[in-house]
Amino acid sequence: MMLEVKDLAAAYSGIEALRGVSLHIEQGEMVALIGANGAGKSTLLNCLSGTVRAKRGSIRFDGSEIVGTRPHRVSRMGLLHVPEGRQILFELTVEENLLLGELARGSRTSDYGLSEVFKLFPILQERRLQRGGTLSGGQQQMLAIGRALMGGPKLLLLDEPSLGLSPIITDQVFDALQALNAAGLTILLVEQNANRALQVTKRAYLLEHGELAYQGNSADLLHDEKVIAHYLGHLPSA
């Protein structure tokens, strides 16, 4: 098992954001975590990557307990978090952003070096020497994903990769994620765009007010009346 979270609770600026969440991800899976704004999705990811300290519960990643481990150690273990809003380092060039990502790899081997990332996102190669801040939103998202890949992830956490992107660019990003997953990468995908997230995953969790409200097959969730009403709105095709 790649990730096993048990009874995780955390507070974020005094508010109880997570109240006992348990979930698990198997090696090679791509799992969606959906929920409304403020449901605790980002807090959950922050707990996993170590930037928010869990109040209670356990997180086992690739066989070791990581609650209380500092963020740079977590990422060096191979759990890489692409944060919400992409968070490109504006002053560094595209290439420097990518090379920085290499740091998390340490002595582990990785399937992804500069050339693989450039193959996945050719636009990054064109913009190689530009500052990160000059990229468009979609390119920044690609850079953020590429940068995490450079770290040789065993598990990739993505926080709202479609945020602020046009539908066409969103498709490109999701295509890339599906390709990565097909090549064996384990992915936890957090999305407000639930419809899109459920389409590309097999299994999903639904988070509501810091608790798991539903878990199961993504396809079932897509057709669940309550989920449709609350999270998907009117679906043309699903």
């Binding site: 500092r70 890489l80 978090h81 968070q87 380092l89 560094l92 990502g101 740091l103 998390a104 940068r147």
Partner: peptide, 23 residues
């Protein structure tokens, strides 16, 4: 690489640490 890490922390410490930089 050390210089890159310094500039990364300068830009955004949290993101730098998510990428394996020890602040």
């Amino acid at each position: 690489s050390f210089g890159r890490q310094i500039r990364a922390v300068s830009g955004n410490e949290r993101v730098a640490s998510l990428l394996g930089v020890n602040p």
